[in-house]
């Protein structure tokens, strides 16, 4: 009698161990739920969000934003983080995924609502264009280079490094010397003079 019970519990234990380790999923479901998991063979890009230029221009910052909550003491809103690169992902797609996954506030303008036909990033972590002076706003660079077009037009490739940088001087304080005023205005001030 006792011997039987022992056998039964062994069987149960075996089943538990087996099933807890494996999910019961179809192939499609597996791919869907694991699309953002980094595997050895996944294509990835790295993204960071930094606003350290504000630390040097703190006096010009909107008083309501003078808090660690909005401007972290080291200026890093998101340290370099790897994300899986999906087919046809743009800089905007990765930023959108990153802020969602990290619950960082972000506000953007859809391409058809501005004049230069790309998504325009108005604010990240409650820091908006003009929050720190008339020449302030968000810019991005990929592998150290500032593209002269909007983030939803930039298609990424494996290994790209994207940095979202808050500028207080139309790019000059983030080492962007060559970008035309129209382009930097487009990218960090929404492109419209009016």
């Amino acid at each position: 009698m006792k011997k039987d019970l022992l056998v039964i519990s062994f069987i149960i234990l075996f089943v538990v161990v087996t099933f807890r380790g494996t999910k019961i999923q179809s192939v499609d479901e597996y791919y869907l739920t694991h699309i953002d998991d980094i595997m050895p063979n996944s294509k990835t890009v790295t993204l960071s969000i930094v606003c350290d230029t504000i630390l040097d221009n703190y006096d010009r910052l909107d008083p309501q934003l003078k808090s660690d909550k909005y401007v972290p003491s080291d200026g890093i809103i998101l340290p370099p983080t790897k994300y899986v690169l999906r087919e046809q992902d743009t800089v905007y797609n990765i930023l959108d995924r990153a802020v969602r996954h990290n619950k960082i506030q972000m506000e953007h303008q859809a391409p058809h609502l501005n004049s230069y036909g790309s998504v325009y990033i108005q604010g990240i972590n409650y820091l908006y264009e003009f929050s720190c002076g008339p020449l302030s706003g968000w810019m991005y660079r990929v592998n150290g280079i500032f593209p002269n077009y909007g983030c939803s037009k930039y298609e990424l490739k494996d290994g790209d490094v994207i940095e979202w940088l808050y500028t207080c001087d139309l790019g000059r304080d983030v080492d962007c010397q060559w970008l035309g005023i129209r382009e930097s205005t487009s990218i960090c001030l929404g492109g419209d003079f009016n």
């Binding site: 303008q109 058809h112 609502l113 501005n114 004049s115 419209d192």
Partner: peptide, 11 residues
């Protein structure tokens, strides 16, 4: 009209 109140919707 979905764009009214934006740059492309007003100019």
């Amino acid at each position: 009209l979905e764009q009214a109140g934006t740059t492309p919707g007003d100019w």
